[in-house]
Amino acid sequence: MSGMPLRFLSGLPLIVMAAALLVLGLQRVQPRAVAAVSLADLLAVDGRLDDAVAWADLRARDGDAFALRRLADLADLDGDTAKRATTLQRLVRTGKATLAEHVEAARAMAAAGALKDALTILYNADIRFTNEVSEDFLSFYVAVAIDCGRADVAKPLARRIWKRTGSERALRLMERLREVRPAAPG
């Protein structure tokens, strides 16, 4: 009988190890995005841009905003505008993109002919950065909205900026929106 507690005690480290293995060992070992992207940067510095983009792409598959941002930058460095555009769009969808990144994403989409995607991004930027959007932003927004046949979408912002600044440029943009006929239903 006296051997029981002893056996239990000697088995205790094994139990602790097993528990630790269950908790820690089953977790997926994943380096932090920061460290992973650093390798991508090293590859980029060495001129191996394709490898750098491929590596950053791998790290960004989980939609981490930091990794997506680096991927967009590396794709930009590589001159891969299509990759950059889709990556920026993914970054915007995470809700963690800055206003400049929203605008860059919309510019890339618009240049590629995806005007509705561009308008969606600008619309979200207006909601997320209400007090930060400028007249330059409005100018772009108005152009895309008109080209999409959705001048109505940009009207609130035009009115708001005109009220805030009273500038001639905002007024001109408002008038431009007013001149556009509403799109026919359907």
Partner: peptide
């Protein structure tokens, strides 16, 4: 030019 875009 107050058109701050170039996609067109």
């Amino acid at each position: 030019d107050d058109r701050a875009y170039s996609y067109d």
